[in-house]
Amino acid sequence: TEYKLVVVGAGGVGKSALTIQLIQNHFVDEYDPTIEDSYRKQVVIDGETCLLDILDTAGQEEYSAMRDQYMRTGEGFLCVFAINNTKSFEDIHQYREQIKRVKDSDDVPMVLVGNKCDLAARTVESRQAQDLARSYGIPYIETSAKTRQGVEDAFYTLVREIRQH
């Protein structure tokens, strides 16, 4: 089974770092803004072998026109913010609204991801993020692309959301 996953969120929150940590098991430290990259990885989730087709997208506003296209083809979405960047957390709402509009559905598989949880300088409390996820009816997972904490959990949870859909 193949799953088309799309990673969305503001610029600099760590979308590529999360994806590369999942696929290649290493942490990319330097920031190089993405336009669009796709990665494929075969994994076993709950005993089922599946192929993850992951689209890593641009957070930069100037590429926002490309969003409709990949939102149409994606089956599930990782909505990523950084726990030390309140603005990126506030941006999640717009991504969710755009996904709902493009998919013409209120019920699209999504996982809210709070990345950079290895950093002490948190400005978005776990509780705020949990409340937001609960209001959307989606899971919330904290990750660190640096330490790998929660990385597999985030992507695998999204696959489970798609399966249950």
Rank of each mutant, 00 (worst) to 15 (best):
R134H: 10
D32Q: 04
K146F: 15
T73P: 08
V159S: 03
C50A: 07
V102H: 10
G47Y: 04
Y136M: 09
T34S: 01
R72F: 09
T19S: 13
E75W: 07
T157K: 14
R127S: 11
V159D: 01
E97S: 09
T19F: 00
A120I: 07
T49L: 10
Y3N: 06
M66W: 14
A82H: 12
I162M: 13
R134F: 06
L112F: 09
D91A: 15
I83V: 14
Q128S: 10
V13P: 05
F81Q: 03
Q21C: 07
R40Q: 04
E125N: 10
I162P: 02
D53V: 01
M66R: 13
V44N: 14
G47S: 07
S38E: 03
D46F: 05
L55D: 14
D153N: 06
I20R: 01
L5D: 00
N85F: 03
A65F: 11
A65K: 15
R67Y: 14
G137A: 04
Q130C: 06
T19Q: 03
G114L: 08
K87W: 06
Q42W: 06
H26W: 14
N25V: 04
D56Q: 01
D32W: 03
Y39I: 00
I92V: 10
E61S: 13
I141L: 09
G14N: 00
L55Y: 04
M71C: 06
D104V: 09
D106E: 13
T57G: 04
R40G: 05
D104E: 11
K87T: 11
Y39D: 00
E75M: 13
R67G: 14
V113W: 00
I54R: 00
E142D: 06
Q149C: 07
N25Y: 06
T1I: 13
D46I: 10
T157G: 05
T19R: 01
H165S: 12
Q21H: 10
Q94Y: 15
I92Q: 04
Y63E: 08
T49D: 05
C117D: 13
Q98T: 14
K100P: 03
F81N: 01
I45Q: 05
I45S: 10
E125T: 11
Q21L: 05
V124Q: 10
I99G: 01
G74M: 12
H165V: 11
T19C: 08
H165P: 12
E62F: 15
Y95S: 06
G9D: 03
R72N: 11
T1Q: 07
G114C: 10
D153F: 05
Q164L: 04
C50F: 09
P33V: 02
A120E: 13
D106L: 14
Q128G: 06
E152V: 11
V124N: 09
L52S: 03
T123C: 11
A154M: 14
Y63M: 10
K4S: 11
S16D: 01
S16I: 01
P139V: 07
I92H: 02
T123M: 07
F81P: 01
S105H: 12
G150H: 07
R122Q: 12
E90R: 09
N85R: 06
T49F: 05
D131W: 06
I45F: 05
F77R: 02
T157Q: 14
A58T: 11
L78V: 12
Y156D: 09
Q42A: 10
V6C: 08
C117F: 10
F27S: 02
L158A: 04
G11R: 15
T49C: 11
D56L: 01
I162K: 05
T123N: 10
C117L: 06
K103L: 12
K116D: 02
Y39G: 00
F81T: 04
R101D: 05
G74S: 11
G9K: 00
E152Q: 08
R67M: 15
I54D: 00
E161F: 10
G59H: 05
F77A: 03
R96L: 15
T57K: 02
Q128C: 09
D32K: 00
D153H: 08
S144R: 05
G76H: 02
D53Y: 03
R127W: 11
F89D: 02
G74R: 06
E62H: 15
K41Q: 09
E90M: 11
R122N: 13
K15W: 00
E142M: 04
V6M: 07
K116W: 14
V102P: 03
E125K: 05
S64N: 14
A133Y: 05
M71I: 09
F81H: 02
S144D: 15
Q128H: 10
L132W: 12
K116E: 06
V108W: 07
E61K: 12
I20P: 00
G76E: 02
K4T: 06
G9F: 01
Y156A: 15
A129L: 13
V102D: 07
A133R: 03
I92D: 02
I45T: 06
L18S: 06
D107A: 10
A145N: 09
Y95P: 00
Y63L: 08
A82T: 13
G11V: 10
Q42R: 08
E125H: 07
C50P: 07
E2Y: 03
A120L: 08
R96V: 15
T1S: 08
A133E: 03
H26G: 14
L5C: 05
A58G: 11
D104I: 05
K103Q: 05
D104F: 08
R134W: 03
D29M: 09
D153V: 06
A154W: 01
V159A: 06
D68N: 09
E62R: 13
T86W: 07
E2M: 05
G11L: 15
H26D: 13
Y70G: 11
V151R: 03
Y136H: 09
C79N: 01
N85Y: 04
S135F: 11
R122D: 13
A154R: 01
Q98K: 13
L112R: 01
A17S: 03
R72L: 09
G114A: 10
L18F: 14
I162Y: 04
V7G: 01
V80L: 09
V159W: 10
D29L: 04
Y95H: 03
R160M: 08
A145S: 14
Q164S: 10
Q42E: 11
Q60Y: 15
D56E: 01
E152G: 07
Q149D: 10
P139Q: 09
G74C: 12
A10C: 10
N25C: 05
E2P: 05
V124C: 08
Q164K: 12
I141E: 05
T157N: 05
F77N: 01
G59D: 03
D106H: 13
A121T: 10
G9I: 00
A17Y: 00
G76S: 03
D91W: 14
D37A: 00
T143Q: 03
L78A: 06
P109A: 07
E161V: 09
L22I: 07
I45V: 12
N84F: 05
T86C: 10
S64R: 08
M66K: 12
L158Q: 01
R67E: 13
P109S: 05
Y140D: 01
A82S: 14
T86K: 14
S64M: 08
I162L: 12
D107Y: 10
N85K: 10
V124P: 12
E61W: 12
S144K: 07
Y39V: 01
F77Y: 12
I54W: 02
N25G: 08
E2N: 05
A120P: 08
Y95I: 15
T143D: 01
G150P: 10
V44A: 07
R122S: 13
I99Y: 02
M71F: 14
D32S: 03
A82Y: 02
E36R: 00
E30G: 03
D68F: 05
Q98L: 15
L18T: 07
A58L: 02
A121V: 08
S16T: 07
S126C: 09
Y31I: 05
K41G: 11
L18V: 11
F27P: 01
D118F: 00
G76A: 14
N115M: 15
D106A: 12
R160W: 06
R67T: 15
V108F: 12
V151P: 09
I20S: 03
K15T: 03
A145D: 00
